[in-house]
Design a protein around this nucleic acid. Structure first.
Lengths: 336, 336
DNA sequence: CTGAAAGCGCTAACAG
DNA sequence: CTGTTAGCGCTTTCAG
């Protein structure tokens, strides 16, 4: 293995000069830098990550904790993970993958052994048991999602309440008076995942404000549930003309189910969703939607972490404003 | 930060004794071990990962390279990643997440900097550009999937050829004489992903052997493609009664499309698939399928790597035998 | 702008 | 069964 002293000797400089040439932490004359770089290239030198971590107390590794639970949409998690890795690499960091299953002990382990410099935690619950730990850890962290109280923590997420409102307002603007929200699976609400509840809050508040009739239906994510929920909706709200879907796997099957029940989308029923743009676009009838920008959230999460690692203060809460795209699934309410 | 010398002092032993008590690499008297463990607990000691890696030249981290490409089914990748992480933890290892995008340079980087001890590479192509590198690296690796030639490498995967054959044989047994394979998206074949081709080989070979008519149709993964491909199949093979689906996102929509075209499944058309069991079970008409055991493959991949790290020889090729489960989508061919 | 040298915290000979 | 000690390869004062 070629080490820094080999490079130094080859370039006719001291090891510290090589180190500084690499880190840029102090000025190096152009000529010396050239020689060092040449030596590095010729010898194929790669600094040893462990030695570096030991000497500098920085591992240049971030931990990413991904959820495994039922009711979360896998492609969103994956897209998020990819954007975290990609962004981390831009800052010369790598990403260690942890599963939710490892729990608090896992977080403590990677932080206390200095395996990672900082942590990103996904799928935060309203009363997440990891909160006290994250506050106590000597390493910075960013949470995707908002717990009940985030004092002393850094959180980022789509503004799901505003997203729910935006969907309602759009439908209201189109003249719809009776709305329904088809939400996430019941277990997601039971375990108090904040984002699901926030959508409900926004949806209900906006509907009330606009004087619209509204109903909320948590729903299994299985496509087979689509037909059942569609029938139930039409039965309970015969005058229904506007539907908001916050349940990725159900979106396409639900639109199909409506059509099979003889309702044209958007002729009889306007549909909007909160989901990744790619999904909304891929439905047979492209769906008007508020984007779930997993990629952007991942990128921003890493950027926040990098600022914290650099000693910069960052806002405790970052709520991304909803961005709605009109597609083929919404239209003005047909006159009776 | 509490370090090993603190623990040693607190327990009245030498640092090396603490180290050995932790690693078990040499016998420690019961009494001493107790004292050391007590000291560790009382002080909340955690060995520093970097220091450990430097001194032992083992980071206890594995690299996992995940594919990002179009045409791969995200939940399979995710399930695979989770099983790798879970199994790695059982061996006291962590997992560093790399994206395909980083390419060969990424592999070289994490290997040469000693960030990781070993690598797992997914989505291997027939003529994968990473092969020479993996052979040359001084660290062991395991590939998920089989390249054209795997001499000097370790590969593991479902036996996709046998899986394709199993599907045909099952349909043949039920009396079906005209079969079609609805495959992965064209780009998957174009870039020569081995597993997709192997399914085709197995399907075609088994059909020919049994004297059955057969046709292969690569197909986009979008649900919207289902209706189109269904019509095309029936048009080109009017006598079609057996379909093999190797395209996860298309499975449910395709079954729906057949029914909408007036074909009963399994009454008029028997359908089998190669996909994760959970997917096959979740379709409205549960589908007879050969399981894609991502979890098992992940586990086995880690176990192979651990053996290699331990200096044990392992087989170059591990092909998992297909396991077929009969469900509601297959039935004997109706008499004309 | 550059060098010398003291660690970072742990492991693994070596010695007993 | 346990202790002593010499590194592992790099960063970062301190000195010039």
């Amino acid at each position: 293995m070629v080490k820094i002293t080999d490079v130094a000797r080859h370039a006719g400089v001291s090891p510290s000069t090589v180190s500084y040439a690499l880190s840029g932490k102090r000025p190096i004359s152009e000529e010396t830098r050239q020689r060092v770089e040449a030596a590095i290239r010729e010898l194929g030198y790669r600094p040893h990550a462990g030695a570096r971590a030991l000497a500098s107390s920085r591992s240049n590794v971030l931990a990413l904790v991904v959820p495994l639970r039922a009711g979360i949409h896998v492609p969103v998690v994956m897209q998020f993970a990819v954007s975290v890795v990609t962004t981390a690499r831009r800052y010369d960091h790598d990403v260690l993958l942890l599963t939710q299953e490892e729990g608090e002990e896992g977080l403590r382990r990677v932080a206390d052994t200095a395996l990672v410099d900082a942590l990103i935690v996904m799928d935060v619950q309203l009363h997440d048991p990891r909160l006290p730990l994250l506050r106590a850890l000597d390493r910075p962290s960013v949470m995707i999602g908002f717990p009940a109280s985030h004092a002393g923590l850094t959180c980022i997420d789509l503004d799901f309440k505003a997203a729910g409102e935006a969907c309602v307002e759009q439908l209201a603007r189109l003249g719809h008076r009776v709305l329904a929200l088809v939400g996430s699976p019941p277990e997601v609400y039971v375990r108090q995942t904040a984002f699901a509840q926030r959508v409900v809050q926004g949806f209900t508040a906006a509907a009330d404000r606009a004087g619209l009739a509204s109903a909320v239906h948590p729903c299994e994510a299985a496509p087979s549930a689509a037909r059942r929920i569609a029938e139930q909706l039409l039965c309970e709200q015969p005058a229904l003309t506007g539907v908001v879907v916050h349940n990725e796997p159900l979106l396409e099957p639900l639109v199909d189910a409506f059509e099979q029940l003889g309702l044209r989308v958007p002729g009889d029923l306007s549909v909007t969703a909160i989901c990744p743009d790619e999904l909304a676009e891929s439905v047979r009838i492209p769906v008007t939607s508020v984007a779930l920008p997993s990629g952007e959230i991942g990128t921003r999460a890493v950027e926040l972490l990098m600022q914290k690692l650099g000693g910069t203060e960052v806002p405790e809460a970052t709520l991304l404003a909803p961005r709605m795209t009109e597609r083929a699934s919404t239209a003005p309410r047909a006159l009776p």
